[in-house]
Write a protein that binds this DNA or RNA. Structure first.
Lengths: 338, 338
DNA sequence: TTGAAAGCGTTACCAT
DNA sequence: ATGGTAACGCTTTCAA
């Protein structure tokens, strides 16, 4: 049938028997601890290799009180933010033998609790909480757990360690780029002002583009971007550079500009935010956009929970990681006037 | 500092001491095994609740040889297919106390091996292999593992249990819908014919739309869809219904039609495939599309590995799950001619 | 009805 | 240089 080879796993006892030594000797040989003849050690290692012995992490964890396992909790259903983050966490930790439990909770406190308890039962060495916005917390209280918790891209309680991308710096990057291209009449089209990320980006935008530069709050959707740009032109606005709060909005903006017969990047340069590959690279023209380096964020969050789990004492607080600009085709130098 | 409450976990010994009984009595009370006074049982349960005792799954697993843990292996970086699937797996298994290790491998056999071995060391009860296309295998051999493996949305070896969506049925659904609207001149615009999914959908399309109905293979991208439609019109094609191989293509198609001044859904009805929410709902008009029910697929795959892990013998083979049609705004009834 | 003891697979310590 | 033994937290006989 379908599951023939389910050979029972070989244990350290089997290995000891085959090698003709005691279990403790095998253990020491394999872990490079204790003192023993290099020949014996090598021989045991070779035999272990041959019979395909792999130590049972459950038994190991029982003794060491470390499971080499961490939990990643998220309420970001699409995985827009979670997957890159997860990739970073995973990449940083595989080599240390750490595996990651992924738990997707859909803003359901009950399910969230169940997931968290399941992870705790499994003795995870730590938990990374993540989500889709930095100013909202997950629907579950993680503050009195017996394991360290690190927050990444979601709000943590006071005194927690939280990782986030530097929205202001990212926005500055985008605006500075537009300015460097000679674009002077800038507009910012973004999501709802209830999002702190939107506000921070907007403030950074104003700082560089001038306090009077228009900021248009709306939704994080294409249609919102498109309508904003249509309204703008209807009202006589004629920016030559548009910085968008995310890539979806940017697509809508480009869409709207096409409808208006305005050339991108000829007449107007457009910059997005998120570098959501699938959206940014498929737009026409491909989108120049800000990348939040979520993978790096994940990597650091992963390393941090692990360090906390090993007993290191780290300063609590918010840690902002820099963004970078990914240049594609939606921006060009402003035409020389005379 | 940041990790104050790391109280050492309470064990069954603590609980036994508090309750004034032996560990074995506690164990039996909590597991509803053995015989004992209902009052004692209730009292122990209550105390367990009070002091927040939760059994150590590592210890439990050591004994029972079950870790209540499974691994999900994927090479789908964007998570387009993996996340819905994962949601299904997770949803079906949380209640059974099973947690899921997610391992994203990027077509790197080396990393894949490392991940698989890490999971095996952790004594996973089974592995679900998944990916981004049904006719390619993951870059790692999973066929001689000591745990059951189920394949979902990725190719498995002969005699394995594989879950996939029913591409033909999904395509039929789409085409039948177009026909039911009175659309008669149908075209299919899809991805590369190297994808078996593309071919199967195309065949199903031809079966219903007529053997002569045009099938245009291209890429799975927006630009490919747009160009196909532009070419089509340039060459004088005037379909009134377009079935697209995926939602990205459908977006491109709609985009191209707008450029041509063709109304969707007035002049042409468009159906997509995938129901990639973020793409389908944001297109103008929102996309009517085929949903592969990946969540259900995940649920079944999850239940199946678990069953195999419990020793059940199941028939190997490919199991196709039905798709459903999600109606949005991109289709309408054909105008009455006279 | 309850408890003592063995054992799951591993590591650490102390003898030999 | 190597091996015996205890211990990690739990479940499961088996005895009382």
């Amino acid at each position: 049938m379908a599951q023939e080879q389910k050979s029972s796993r070989t244990t350290i006892h089997d290995l000891a028997r085959v090698a003709g030594v005691s279990v403790s000797t095998v253990s020491k040989a394999l872990n490079d601890t204790g003192r023993m003849g290099e020949d014996t050690r090598a021989r045991i290692k070779r035999i272990a290799e041959e019979i395909g012995f792999r130590p049972n992490a459950l038994a190991r964890g029982l003794l060491s009180r470390r499971s080499f396992t961490i939990g990643l909790l998220t309420n970001d259903t699409y995985g827009r933010f979670t997957l890159p983050l997860m990739a970073g966490v995973s990449e940083a930790l595989v080599d240390k033998g750490v595996s990651v439990f992924l738990c997707a909770i859909e803003d359901d406190p009950e399910r969230a609790r169940v997931h968290v308890e399941a992870m705790l039962d499994k003795q995870v060495d730590g938990i990374i909480a993540t989500g889709k916005r930095i100013d909202r917390a997950l629907p579950v209280d993680l503050s009195n757990l017996p394991v360290p918790v690190v927050y990444a891209f979601t709000a943590g309680p006071p005194n927690s360690i939280t990782y986030a991308s530097d929205d202001a710096q990212g926005a500055e990057l985008a605006v500075a780029y537009l300015l460097s291209l000679g674009r002077t009449r800038l507009v910012h089209i973004t999501g709802p002002d209830m999002f702190i990320a939107a506000v921070e980006r907007a403030e950074a935008f104003r700082k560089l583009a001038g306090e009077g530069a228009p900021v248009l709050y709306g939704q994080w959707t294409e249609s919102s971007g498109r309508e904003a740009v249509l309204d703008l032109w209807r009202q006589g606005g004629r920016p030559d550079g548009i910085f968008c709060g995310n890539d979806m909005i940017a697509r809508g903006v480009i869409d709207g500009l096409r409808e208006l017969g305005v050339s991108v990047p000829g007449d107007v340069s457009v910059v997005g935010f998120d570098n959501w590959e699938i959206v940014a690279s498929q737009s026409r023209p491909p989108l120049t956009t800000v990348d939040m380096n979520l993978k790096e964020l994940g990597r650091q969050a992963g390393l941090t929970v692990l360090a906390l789990g090993e007993g290191q004492i780290l300063e609590p607080g918010l840690r902002k990681l820099g963004c970078s600009l990914v240049v594609r085709g939606s921006c060009s130098h402003a035409p020389i006037d005379e």
